[in-house]
Amino acid sequence: MQASFAHALLETDLPEVDEHGRFNVYRNNLRITLRNALRTTFPAVEKLVGEDYFSALTLLYVERHPPRSPIMTEYGHDFAAFLSGFSPLSDYPYLADVARLEFARVQAYHAADTHNFRMDSEASAIAALDIRAMLHPSVTVVVSENPALSIWRAQLEPDATPLIPDATETAIIWRQDDLVTEMLAHADDALLLRHFAQSQTFAALISEFPDDPSVATLIARFINLAIAGIIVPTHTPIEGEMK
């Protein structure tokens, strides 16, 4: 009974299940509540394609990729992949990246807490270079062959700087002081973001080229990312040592 009920819920093009059409209330409700959940998570994608299109798009997505978890903030994890593979939207390749960015923002809001590096003196900054560190649990890096971050921002601020069509953008999304934040990655950040995807020390990164002039740039970027709370110590610091 439950299996056929569940099957019928996901099929749209079914004949009437019951004579009063009351089963359709369940079929309809499933789609409406899930569309609303996606609308909450992907407001810029909705703005980009328009309300009607978003409705039609999410209907397809809901039927093909129904939720696997009862936590609705996790729904839509593969919406970006779905958009990439949806041929009618192939003229808008940035849509998937905007979706990735929006999903990352919701995940960042709910991600675990950690401690930040203290960077208020030269001594503490130098010490941090030898401490095992990782990316904050809220961090997502969205590498886009399009100006995805700028396009997303333009949905917020219609008068934003004109977009450069050929730009590629790598965006870092994370939670800073309880606010979800996003910024363009610096050219030298890619190496650091890759390195700290696993628990590592900064020292390990430069052990093979300690005297290279690029080290100074990397140190500056490391300090920037650590102050922003993007790179954080792996272990909870000893009381009084770091905040």
Binding site: Q2, A6, L30, P67, P70
Partner: peptide, 17 residues
């Protein structure tokens, strides 16, 4: 009510027999 079946979560409170 039920809301999950075969790994799918239906986000609704569905009727039981």
């Amino acid at each position: 009510a039920w809301s999950s079946h075969d790994g799918v979560y239906f986000n609704d409170l569905l009727p039981v027999v």
